[in-house]
Amino acid sequence: MIAGTKKKAARGGGKGRRSSAARAFLESAKKRPNLVIQTEALVDRILFEGRRCTGVRYKHGDAWVVAKCRRETILSCGAFQSPQVLLRSGIGHRTNCQSMGSTC
């Protein structure tokens, strides 16, 4: 319920479940054989060969993992962490990249 009213909060899908980005976009795509969804992962940096993104390096539990890609990488770490990952990867203003320990 929305505070102060008798209206129910917005729901998606018509099945009484709250809508979310995961339900809206990943639910139908997660059956694809070329898609891996890794939760509870902390992305460190985007990996490049020249100017082409070839994957990401992330921490999962106690292990560092490298995920390679051939076509595309989608970075979705939120409003604060996405810019930090870009800077650690060497994407951005030189002064900001250097403060994150990277070179642009």
Rank of each mutant, 00 (worst) to 15 (best):
L26R: 04
M100T: 03
R52E: 14
V43Y: 11
G14R: 02
R70H: 13
A10L: 13
G13T: 06
F80E: 04
R45M: 09
Q81A: 12
K31L: 11
V56T: 10
Q84W: 00
F25A: 10
W64G: 02
T39H: 08
S76D: 11
E49W: 02
A41L: 05
T54A: 03
A22T: 09
G55R: 07
E49K: 13
R57P: 09
T73F: 13
G92A: 02
M1D: 04
R18A: 15
G101F: 00
L86N: 01
M100L: 02
E40N: 12
R52W: 04
V56M: 06
K8C: 06
K15Q: 14
G50A: 08
R57H: 03
K68T: 10
I74N: 04
K7Y: 08
I91A: 02
H93T: 04
R23S: 14
S28L: 12
Q84G: 06
K8R: 12
Q81V: 06
G12Y: 07
R70T: 12
I37N: 14
R11S: 15
M1T: 09
G50Q: 06
H60W: 00
G4L: 09
R45L: 07
R88Y: 02
S102Y: 02
Q38M: 11
A79R: 03
Q38W: 08
K7E: 07
G12F: 10
D62Y: 06
I46K: 02
R88W: 01
C69D: 01
I91F: 04
V36E: 15
I37P: 09
T73K: 00
K15I: 11
I37H: 03
G92I: 03
G101D: 04
E27W: 11
A67M: 03
S19R: 12
D62K: 07
K7W: 06
I37G: 08
T103M: 03
G55V: 11
R51W: 01
D44R: 15
E49L: 05
R57W: 04
Q98P: 00
R88P: 09
G55H: 05
K68M: 06
R17M: 14
K15M: 12
T54W: 03
Q98D: 00
R45C: 14
D44F: 07
A9W: 06
E27K: 12
R51G: 13
A22R: 06
K7M: 08
R52I: 08
S28H: 13
S76M: 11
M1K: 12
K59R: 15
K15G: 13
K31R: 14
R52S: 09
G92Q: 00
A79M: 04
G16H: 05
